[in-house]
Design a protein around this nucleic acid. Structure first.
Lengths: 340, 340
DNA sequence: GTGAAAGCGCTAACAT
DNA sequence: ATGTTAGCGCTTTCAC
């Protein structure tokens, strides 16, 4: 049994398609008797208006595409959650796609979505700093400014659109300042975000905090780890060569791993080494000791993206200048750092 | 600048729409010269065929809807991951919706998806055992067997479709048996899944394990917690009244919380109280001590669902009888239980 | 080599 | 009160 259409019902009742359509919509133009018959039949046979046909007619799908790098990362899950909430409230559904940290997959996904299937796009691109220029061209090429786009997290001035970003400089500063203020002198940074603007900004913030207290910046304390690198090995090396008393890890899972390594090597956290992570997920709360972290307010970022996008979709005729919203971070102090 | 259509290009080149369509598809019918001109123009102006129109024409959207209760639960994230992987490999995209544990939202979502926007549906329904009958009717009513459906995790015989389930009875048995085998005599169960078949099956498995060793079943040891209940308060009560030496918690986050409460009350895990959780997420690995858990192989479940669904979508004409696939669980032994 | 026409399922303006 | 027509963007068959 396939889907019931107006046409089939029209044939069944020997009336025209438009009559059936009107009957279904309870139009005053149709006699009560016919309406009743048709509506009853429609209900009994589970008639559903074909949304694809309506989308074509209305040149709108009431859905938005979301492309994120990774769904196993709590930050993105929170963003998605925020988007979903606002989108649903405002009558949109979301099509979510995972680029899995692959530029190629991201492009394929964008290509897929940019063909009338969605009214707008929310994207956290996975480019690194060296790829920005080329990739920005690619995205512009792809979308041709035909469809509203909101960029979040990893953004670039090369693409002209609405953006939602975290104040990563301030976040890095806040975290490092807290470590310095609680007595740390030699602070290492562990970043899983090689060559990204976000990582760089957080490190700039860290430098500022050091400078304010006249602590020297030592770039051998910056440990950049790739997907295949052995964190334990690399971290141990630094731990052996310097007297580290603080570590800033640029995402949640890295922070947890760093803490686990430090503990297993006999350091007391936070007394020997204080640790600060990023992203307020479930992990940091339940790990022992509970992790002090910088929260980026993922859900709020998602809500902001969705509102920005839907506003633009619904005001396509009266376009406003593009906005970049900066969401502030908060330091959530728990037990992996010393008290102030 | 809006989306470029064939019609517009036809007007621009003063040819017919069908000519442009053929040119775009590089048809042998069109002169090389015209093809080159049109293709160049299309490329420069970022022409994308309108997918909605194609979907209407093909009566297929090459996308599948996924409805899950919660995206902040690692099990579902893993399932989604598995679905996404297979779907993409087989040329489908996924529309994911979160029912947020609300039956009402689930119904609205199904309604939304069942209107031509997707070719098939994967659903983990949120009904409790008392709601099954009514809700099954509702779902059948809604979908009217017009669209392929795969149910996973929480299923019911009342709906005739493909299903993927976990052997929850065996999972409960395995977990309890391990506790018993490592010396536990008084094992409490903490379940956040009030009145679900899954919870009940796991508890049946637990009973079987007790029985095999002639341990008595005591239903005051079963602690069912609702969303608003104070786990710490309720658990403390049981801990005070009985000499508990093992706890089985039916999801990951509950297991972590239970362990945290036990530790804070001075129990040593696993020596005083051994703990087993369910769902192999990030939490259980990094918590101290690392949690012994029952893995449901979420990603594999997702892959199985997607394959089952797409097979059915693509063989609508030659329907096979419905299948129910049972995915076995594995016990992953870590440090929250004693060694065997 | 190019175009006209029909149709996917639906709605809406315009007849009758 | 009911029907006809046109059109959303596209493909495909059949004419010319």
């Amino acid at each position: 049994m396939s889907k019931l259409t107006l046409k089939e019902m029209a044939a069944h009742f020997k009336v025209s398609v438009s009559t059936v359509s009107k009957a279904i919509h309870d139009s005053y133009e149709i006699s009560e008797e016919l309406k009743a018959k048709i509506q009853k039949f429609a209900k009994e046979n589970h008639y559903r208006p074909n949304k694809v046909a309506l989308n074509l007619l209305n040149r709108s799908t009431k859905s938005i595409g979301v492309v994120i790098p990774n769904i196993l990362n709590y930050f993105f899950v929170q963003v998605l959650f925020g988007i979903e909430k606002v989108a649903n409230d405002r009558g949109y559904s979301i099509i979510s796609c995972i680029s899995n940290h692959s530029l190629e997959k991201e492009v394929i996904t964008l290509e897929l979505l940019n063909s009338g299937s969605v009214d707008g796009l929310i994207l956290s691109s996975v480019f690194t700093e060296s790829q920005i220029e080329k990739h920005a061209e690619h995205i512009k090429e792809l979308l041709g400014e035909q469809i509203p786009l909101v960029l979040f997290d990893r953004v670039t001035e090369l693409i002209d659109c609405d953006k939602v970003i975290v104040d990563d400089f301030e976040a890095g500063y806040k975290a490092a300042k807290y470590l310095v203020d609680t007595g740390c002198k030699t602070i290492a940074v562990v970043t899983p975000m090689k060559n990204t603007q976000i990582g760089r900004l957080r490190i700039e913030g860290y430098k500022k905090a050091l400078k304010e207290r006249d602590l020297p910046f030592d770039d051998t304390l910056i440990l950049s780890i790739g997907k295949k690198d052995d964190l334990e090995f690399l971290l141990s090396f630094i731990l052996n060569s310097k007297k580290i008393d603080g570590i800033m890890a640029l995402d949640e899972i890295t922070a947890v791993k760093v803490m686990s390594i430090a503990k297993s090597r006999g350091y007391h956290v936070p007394n020997d080494i204080a640790i600060i992570g990023f992203t307020n997920g479930q992990l940091s709360k339940y790990v022992t000791p509970a992790l002090t972290i910088v929260s980026q307010h993922g859900a709020y970022i998602g809500e902001t993206c969705a509102n920005l996008l839907i506003d633009r979709i619904e005001n396509k005729n009266a376009p406003k200048p593009f906005e970049t919203k900066v969401v502030k971070t908060s330091l959530i102090v728990r037990d992996s750092t010393k008290k102030q």
